[in-house]
């Protein structure tokens, strides 16, 4: 059976309806476990104290902020090439989730930054990049909201997502060039040297998995809602056409 069969709305509704409760339950379980583990069963950092524990929210949220955009990019390409409606609707459904993740990453970053750097906000390249990413999300969502015809909206937002991806990457480099920044380097890099302790790393991996599941559950639920909204439109159009 081809993977594309799931792109049929009826097929997608049946499958996602069966899968969604499990994904949601798993996401809740993993999230609870990761956060309880991370907050209560890890040692305090020798320099940062207990504040470091916000990383179990901050890092996975930041990761999903970027992954959500990548998912939207893939879904947009699938829509443009194969014209599967579910794909376009999944991209639409993912955008607010991604924007929220970006906001969570920014907020937790500010809360973490206050005791660490002594300021809520610094124009650090990473923070700035995420702020710009948030603007891209806002523009994308506003375009979806402004165009009345759903297929036209799907086409236009897909093109915007493609072009936006290129410019988001360019912005990242531009911002890096613009300010070298306070932010620590990637904490999970495979390079030897300053690596995170296993006591932190394992709950962090779990938290990341939990955020992936959470994202999946939210996007599935939102895509189902979008499909129902489209069905409603279709039925109303049918009624009008009489």
């Amino acid at each position: 059976m081809s993977l594309w069969e799931y792109a049929n709305p009826a097929r997608f509704m049946a499958t996602s309806g069966a899968v969604l409760p499990w994904v949601s339950a798993l996401a809740a379980l993993a999230l609870t476990a990761a956060l309880v583990w991370g907050f209560f069963f890890t040692p305090d950092d020798f320099r940062q104290g207990a504040t470091v524990k916000i990383l179990f929210v901050h890092v996975p949220a930041a990761m999903m902020a970027i992954n959500a955009w990548i998912m939207m990019l893939v879904a947009s390409l699938v829509w443009l090439v194969r014209r599967h409606h579910v794909s376009a609707l999944a991209a639409k459904a993912a955008a607010p989730v991604g924007a929220t993740m970006t906001l969570v990453a920014l907020t937790t970053g500010a809360i973490w930054g206050q005791p660490m750097w002594g300021t809520w906000w610094a124009w650090d390249p990473r923070l700035t990049s995420f702020l710009i990413l948030l603007l891209f999300y806002l523009g994308y969502m506003a375009l979806w909201a402004a165009v009345e015809n759903p297929d036209t909206a799907a086409d236009l937002t897909s093109v915007l997502c493609l072009v936006g991806s290129v410019f988001a990457v360019l912005s990242r480099y531009a911002v890096n060039f613009w300010n070298q920044g306070l932010h620590q380097g990637a904490s999970l890099s495979l390079a030897p040297g300053e690596r995170m302790d296993v006591a932190f790393r394992l709950p962090l991996y779990l938290a990341m998995a939990a955020f992936v599941l959470l994202f999946l559950a939210l996007v599935l639920a939102r895509t189902r809602t979008e499909i129902r909204a489209r069905r409603l439109r279709a039925l109303m159009a049918r009624e009008r056409a009489g």
Binding site: L135, F136, G139, A142, F167, S171, A174, W178
Partner: peptide, 13 residues
């Protein structure tokens, strides 16, 4: 809203 974020790299450089 759509165009200004795309202007970021040009503005920076």
């Amino acid at each position: 809203l759509i165009v200004l974020p795309l202007y970021v790299p040009t503005l920076v450089f």
